[in-house]
Design a protein around this nucleic acid. Structure first.
Length: 583
RNA sequence: GCCCCGGUAGCUCAGAUGGAUAGAGUGGCCCCCUCCUAAGGGGCAGGUCAGAGGUUCGAAUCCUCUCCGGGGCACCA
């Protein structure tokens, strides 16, 4: 529709230029937008005001000229000049009403489009280290990423959802060692647990299953374990060095059984993460392992490419990437003095790998605390010869959890956090998913647990779901009154009430909303739209009867609410929120 | 100190690439079930869009500066 109006304007302007009544250097694409106020018609263009300065005419005079040169269209009822020089377009209401037929025909496909042309995109999200359960902060990234992926796929992209499993770093070693130490305690040993080890209950759980399977066979006397582990934290030694020494000790004493402990910890936690996400209706096409990537030599490979391209230098025993040459604020270490590659190095290799897999664009969803990381990754991709625009990073701000007006504290290490699982059990999948995407990702999110739990008018999720259930209920009533729904036996021109017009316009707008939400990566637009649509439905419901005597009117109204139900459903599906038939 | 995000009604937030009197929800007050679920609807009150400059026919929106929140600035991951 927008395109059509744009086309009309372009044609009119070209006609004026041909007549020599308008001379404009650069070709312009007229801006056409939906009006906020229906008193201004359905669509408006500001083009006269934009062009007026190039000609010796006032915007309103120019508007008049443009309108005179606009060819008539069945779709447009009237065109008006308004305000300082807007051109307002009023759509033919028959055309508007035809959306009901479109919705009936397309059903679940209504709103979807093919602007993505089947191009392959990848969305990587959550990717939390498998060193503990997901907490509510991860939930936001999960909901945001999953919804965005749904939206992109709805507008015609081929989307791959990926979770990057950081199963190769030092944190995993700390986890494995933490599990083993807890296991020693279960075997009857007494020890001082390292301050920076993982202390959550889940570590005890994993240790317990280790003990169940292996008895005391993996146990060593605590004196043996801590012998020669320096520095000693009880004497105020450095805790980082202390835990590194403990890790080395664990590997030494457990020999090939170390891997067993490591794998048990990894698989247990990864399994939990996967379950938690599935319970959240978040699923992935790929769980990509960091250690597999490293095993395949990807990091060495990448290092060589960077070195060959001359972007790497030695300094104080370490290998540095000259990222400052690509817009980063300073250079970054790739290989440490001790020979170990940094997390950054494997991250470059990972991103290069993603691009090599043929995605037109890769989208990373990160916590806002990682923002400083963006320039260096982009710099590295550029240095490797990739167009840096192929990576887009979306930063999601923190989610704060409120319970009875009190902010809840979260910390993975101390083990005092609200897990995603607890949240889901408490507020349910639907409310959690909806709440997480109600806000723009740049906005801090205050997640009010009590509100999400309340089965009341305050709760926006129920508000939208209730609209859906209400329509279902109408059709249920219809049956009870021994009437049947006959869409063919209807007269849509009877839908003249302002409430009906509002609802129809809102339905027409749905595909535009999907498009905008997907392209701008703003799922909250869909959530906001659904609340608005539900509002129109509820208002209409209160103002008019649907099950009326006149058959033609009754069926017309039923078609309208039925189409509304369809759109509510379509939108909720994209949010992975259920559309209940009864509440 | 530098970098990122935010500052819109008492509270939580929308405001689509700058556009026509700044909108919801919630809280406060008033009204609406002999009627398809009142988990609903209607109305009233409530704003110097943090502040100051600038660009523009036109700014909550773009630019600069200031103030106030949140986060980040490792040979950690």
């Amino acid at each position: 529709m927008k395109d059509l109006i744009q086309g009309m304007l372009v044609a009119a302007i070209e006609a004026l230029q041909a007549e020599g009544r308008l001379t404009i250097e650069t070709p312009v694409i007229p801006q056409v937008t939906r009006t906020k106020d229906k008193a201004h018609g359905d669509f408006a263009s500001n083009i006269p005001m934009v062009l007026a300065k190039f000609v010796q005419l006032s915007p309103r005079e120019l508007a008049q000229l443009i309108i005179e040169n606009t060819s008539a269209s069945d779709l447009i009822e009237k065109i008006e000049i308004a305000g300082p020089g807007f051109i307002n377009f009023y759509l033919n209401s028959d055309v508007q009403r035809s959306v009901l037929e479109t919705i009936e025909t397309q059903g679940e496909a209504y709103g979807r489009s093919n602007v993505g042309l089947g191009q392959r995109l990848q969305v990587e999200f959550v990717s939390a280290n498998p060193t503990g359960p997901l907490h509510v902060g991860h939930g936001r990234g999960a909901a945001y990423g999953a919804t965005l992926a749904n939206l992109l796929s709805a507008v015609g992209y081929e989307v791959s959802r990926e979770y990057y499993v950081n199963d190769a770093g030092r944190q995993m070693e700390i986890l494995a060692t933490s599990v083993w130490l807890r296991y020693l305690e279960l075997s009857g040993e007494e020890l001082v647990f390292p301050a920076n080890g993982y202390k959550g209950d889940y570590v005890w759980d994993i240790a317990a299953s280790l003990h169940r399977e292996h008895g005391n066979s993996l146990s060593h006397r605590v004196q043996t374990v801590f012998e020669g582990v320096t520095p000693d934290i009880t004497q105020g030694g450095d805790k980082e060095l202390h835990i590194d020494a403990l890790i080395a000790r664990a590997k030494e004493l457990l020999t090939n059984h170390y891997q067993l402990v490591f794998d048990l910890a990894l698989h247990t936690i990864l399994g939990d993460i996967r379950n938690d996400l599935e319970g959240f209706a978040v699923t992935y096409d790929e769980w990509f392992s960091e250690s597999d990537l490293m095993g395949a030599g990807a990091v060495e490979n990448m290092l060589k490419r960077l070195e060959d391209a001359g972007h790497v230098y030695q300094h104080e025993g370490a290998k540095w990437f000259r990222s400052s040459a690509f817009g980063d604020e300073k250079d970054r270490v790739l290989v440490r003095e001790n020979g170990q590659t940094t997390y950054f190095a494997s991250d470059i290799a990972y991103h290069a790998n993603k691009l090599e897999r043929g995605f037109v664009q890769i989208i990373d969803i990160w916590g806002a605390d990682h923002h400083g990381y963006v320039p260096r990754v982009r710099a590295a991709l550029q240095a490797l010869g990739y167009a840096p625009e192929r990576l887009s990073v979306l930063l999601v701000q923190f989610a704060n959890l409120y319970r009875q007006g009190e902010k809840q504290q979260m910390s993975t290490r101390s083990g005092e956090f609200v897990t995603l699982r607890e949240l889901r059990k408490e507020v349910g999948k639907d409310a959690a998913r909806f709440f997480y995407v109600m806000r723009r990702c740049e906005q801090h999110l205050d997640f009010d647990i009590d509100l999400a739990k309340s089965e009341s008018a305050d709760n926006p999720v129920y508000y939208v779901q209730y609209a859906h259930a209400r329509v279902c209920s109408i059709f249920h009533q219809l049956e009870q009154k021994s009437l049947s729904y006959e869409p063919k036996n209807s007269d849509l021109t009877l839908l003249t009430e302002s409430h009906e017009q509002d609802l129809i316009v809102s339905l027409v707008r749905y595909p535009e909303v999907l498009h905008s939400a997907a392209i701008n990566r703003e799922p909250h637009q869909l959530a906001t739209y659904l609340r608005e649509l539900a509002n129109y439905l509820h208002t209409y419901y209160n103002a008019h009867q649907f099950i009326v005597e006149e058959t033609l009117l009754r069926n017309a109204r039923l078609r309208l609410v039925s189409a509304t139900r369809q759109v509510l459903r379509n939108g909720l599906i994209l949010l992975d929120v259920s559309a209940p038939e009864k509440m």
